[in-house]
Amino acid sequence: MALNRDFVGRTYPASTSYEVSRVKIKEFAAAIGDPNPIYRDPEAARAAGHPDVVAPPTFPIVFTLTGAAEALADPDLRLDFAMVVHGEQRFEYVRPIHAGDELLCESTISEIRSMGRNELLTVTSQVTTLQGEPVCTTYNTLIERGGAK
């Protein structure tokens, strides 16, 4: 069944902030198999001009979907999770995320469209500091296979 277009434009602020820790960055870097010391060693990060260890570029995926998760699970949207695959992903960076950051993420369902037999839904998330300084914007497009039937 087609997705409910009434959801386009709905915004979901994060209920809590996300605290970026050295331990989580190190765990994520290990999981993607990247041995770069800038993700593990504060001295190496500082030598490269960063205040603390920085997060790998794809790290925001850890917390950016949380905001929209509630919306995606809303029965009124009619999204069948069993048929969902990740279609596209994009990150626009204002600055690197580093350990010690406390971040807020506000997610908006920015687009729903049909492509062939599939439904495409894009969630755009604005990541900022608690003071409202922009850190990055992420675009996550999910494909619901067969949803446009």
């Binding site: 800038i38 920085v54 570029p57 695959v85 690197p96 675009y139």
Partner: peptide, 27 residues
């Protein structure tokens, strides 16, 4: 998919020399 995107991201940051050099990355 994000695991694959992370490998291609590592390819870019290893080449550039600093993960902080990345401005925009999409796949």
């Amino acid at each position: 998919g994000m695991f694959t995107m992370s490998q291609a991201g590592r390819f870019v940051t290893d080449w550039a020399g600093d993960p902080g050099a990345l401005v925009d990355y999409g796949v």
